[in-house]
Design a binder for these strands. Structure first.
Lengths: 243, 243
DNA sequence: AAGTGGTCTAGACCACCGT
DNA sequence: CGGTGGTCTAGACCACTTG
């Protein structure tokens, strides 16, 4: 049983109202004092809920004016693969639609680059995993993943066939915290050609990632490779009032 | 003259201390009560300053434990081109290093896609701009930009030679607010080959962007094309405690 | 001038982690 | 258990936009 903070509950309700069209795009929302009365909370709590929605790009606020509902952003609507994806593919598409074909599952000692990325010394073994992820039976992304063995000693092929993230979260009890990603355009390599059915010289969208736990420990270094015509990567960048 | 909030001043000071090594990586920072005393502010204000740093990935907090300084993230260190780049190239590299070669500067009526992206009707003309941006005299990125004429009626080639963003912010008085980006891998086209000196069939990293003002009006739709071997795109994704 | 959102306070209670 | 961070309050003052 977990407790959801008031500001989060309120943010959820307000988000629902916006999505339901109860507050129209480019119109004003009720002012913070009214909302505080409606929800029987202090204005600071309302403010925090609104901050959440502003970070999501749903509203914007202007001192002296009010809180506006943001009109739809064209690129946002077309979007299908959000930046916030370190919860994994299964969380996004649902367990039924995602399957995995294991192409490699080895264990080895890390080279210098991997020692640095995962903050390990050369004697701490890592898993070396290559998986083809399929959505609705169709090749979606080819993932090359390195993870420290010591964090997940019981990793097996059965787990790899499903979601590693679910395993780490639910069975091992690790808490995921964040990720740093670097996005490149590269040439298709032999594996891309074989499994993603790329042609030689096709461009490939590669997402290089270091992900870490709530205590700051890196737990994953990975490359995700995508067909250039099948997938893109989207980012929402909200300017926090400074400029 | 503008007034900087206390929490922002404090966040800046604490950030400096972390970067100076005054608070060591993977060590605890002073607790919030102590910091509140040191800066003579309430604990809520300290909390807000720390939230800022947590969003930047510099620290992480654990209930019942304390505030930890995040160890360095490997990809973050190598990084040179941050996601937060809608302030423009000149703001990042400095005015002296960035020059622009104007390849196209036209005005035309928007097609349906552009009407949708920029929320215009078919009778409102837009600028159609192609610029090669050079850093230290070397080709860096090829930018194809569409902007509504009505927002910036006096745009000229002189301005294009420098920073459009500086012009919009300082001379026109527009307030930039946010951007939605979609990142693709694509084939080099004729312009890429000519100006970025790509070879035919080279992959190109393309960033498609819709940017909008503080009042929610879209003011720019653009494509930035980069040589695959010259540039990447980085994103920091911090999980806000939920999962 | 009136009304809005942004900041800040002083204190309270709670949830969580360590011992 | 003591100490930590997370939330929340009721009120205050300020900065800003609009009439």
């Amino acid at each position: 049983m977990k407790k959801t903070p008031k500001y989060e509950q309120i943010a959820n309700q307000l988000r629902d109202r916006i999505n339901a069209g109860e507050y129209q795009a480019n119109e004003l929302m009720p002012d913070q004092v009214s909302l505080a009365e409606e929800f029987s909370v202090s204005r600071m709590t309302i403010k925090k809920a609104l901050d959440t929605l502003a970070l999501e790009g749903l509203i914007y606020t202007r001192r002296g004016d009010g809180t506006h509902v943001m009109g739809d952003i064209s690129l946002k609507i077309e979007t299908n693969s959000p930046a916030d994806e370190h919860r994994g593919l299964t969380a996004f598409f649902g367990q039924d639609r995602v399957t995995s074909k294991i192409i490699r599952f080895d264990i080895l000692f890390p080279n210098e680059a991997l020692q640095s990325h995962l903050k390990l010394n050369k004697n701490e073994p890592i898993f070396d995993i290559v998986r083809l992820r399929l959505v609705d039976e169709k090749p979606y992304v080819l993932e090359h993943t390195y993870m420290p063995q010591k964090l997940m000693p019981n990793l097996s092929e059965d787990i790899l066939a499903n979601s590693i993230y679910d395993y780490l979260k639910n069975d091992v009890g690790l808490k995921l915290s964040g990720a740093y990603r670097k996005i490149h355009a590269v040439f298709a390599d032999d594996l891309d050609i074989e499994y993603l059915q790329c042609r030689p010289n096709d461009p490939v969208l590669e997402v290089e990632q270091v992900a870490w736990l709530a205590d700051g420990t890196p737990f994953e270094y990975s490359f995700s490779r995508n067909r250039y015509d099948a997938r893109s990567y989207t980012v929402l960048d909200i300017n926090q009032g400074n400029a």
